[in-house]
Nucleic acid binder design. Sequence first.
DNA 1: CGTGACGTTGACGAACTTCAACTCCTGTGG
DNA 2: CCACAGGAGTTGAAGTTCGTCAACGTCACG
Lengths: 234, 234
Amino acid sequence: MMTVELDPSVLTGADLFDVLDAQDRAEVLRVGVVRRLPQGKRIFAQGDPGITCHSLLEGRVKIVQTRPDGAQSVIRFIGPGEMYGTVAALMDMPFPADSVAVLDSLEIYWPVKVMRELMTRFPQVAIRSAASAGHRLFELQNRVGELSGERVEQRIAHALVRLVRQAGRRTDEGIEIDFPITRQELAEMAGSTLHTVSRTLASWDDRGITASSRRHIVVRKLHVLLDMADHGAS
Amino acid sequence: MMTVELDPSVLTGADLFDVLDAQDRAEVLRVGVVRRLPQGKRIFAQGDPGITCHSLLEGRVKIVQTRPDGAQSVIRFIGPGEMYGTVAALMDMPFPADSVAVLDSLEIYWPVKVMRELMTRFPQVAIRSAASAGHRLFELQNRVGELSGERVEQRIAHALVRLVRQAGRRTDEGIEIDFPITRQELAEMAGSTLHTVSRTLASWDDRGITASSRRHIVVRKLHVLLDMADHGAS
DNA sequence: CGTGACGTTGACGAACTTCAACTCCTGTGG
DNA sequence: CCACAGGAGTTGAAGTTCGTCAACGTCACG
């Protein structure tokens, strides 16, 4: 494992730590371990004991659940500044899903024991962490609602809207998803198959709603997507 | 609104408060409002500002999400001793779903301001609350996985297993769901329709797996149900 | 004893998945 | 620099699951 030189500013964007001043951030950094994650690297595995809390510094990580029959679903994508694995670790439970780097990435992690100390010393960190868990709770509640009633096209629209919010970058072509994503992954977000996603994107491309290519999606007409997401209007 | 005479022991079963001694529990009770909930009463509505934290003392409450097209999904059922509405309130957000009493029930609630004070004075209450939110997070994550790949029968099996764990009562006939539940509600838990649930239960009844009647379900062969839930074996 | 809410059952077909065969990139090693 | 291997994507056709429509039972309660 290599050690990487970093100055405290790398934690600036992190939800959990931007409430701290530079000195405290330096302290938080000092007690964590920074490491590179090559693309495809599995950071932790579903079922492993949750003994580490992670925060992404650069790149992109996906959280994937595998079911007994082997089918996978993408629970969420993690961007720079987001924490993951934290809830399981703090609750002393096994990780409920795998986490995999989808890009060459950089993370910092702490043994849960250390994170607990940090949270005691810096209660704002604990509060932020709880708030983030709360938001995820609501988001999952919405997803349960979506998955249990909506048609596939609508669910794919929802998934894509979510990606736009989380990883959308404005360009003159429209809003671009800023990391490479496959149809398979989009299917695993929407609870569908890569075939159906492929057909759906093809149709949206035809209608000028999106412009998609290999592992790359640009949303050209977000309003249409939003419409589909909550009316189901085609 | 009527006031109800209660002694502190009513909070004994409550996850959140059984860490407190009798005196502290009495204090917690004193600052809350106890009220009866007739069957069908809506306690709070999706979109309402979350300004109250609730705990069920007796009866049964369902948390239901309504989507723009009018379709509903049952997010969870609340039993005695469970909290609800708390996460939204503490996060100062609108309630993300309706809550409705499915039986004549009894609840206690606190303005969120008061709950925050209680949590400051009794940090164990805050810790319990966070742990409970964490468990719900994992449960929802699993449900997302289930809803996005599994076949209907398997999803209904999951829903029923969940009900057994939460509201199962051993009888000599098998394990009985201890509150009245309609096929419609089971369908809304499993992301299906009352028709499919009706057919599925009929088939299970034939095979001796369950014994269902009007708003009433007894599970006779839990192992078969568990098998179906995670193998998909029929 | 009538009026709703709840439940059942059959027929039908749309929506998707599954299967299969092909194409097109992209990176790698000879 | 080219060949080729494997990942990613496309597209048609076949097959199934399940939702939808419709009509009818039945239980509970006033």
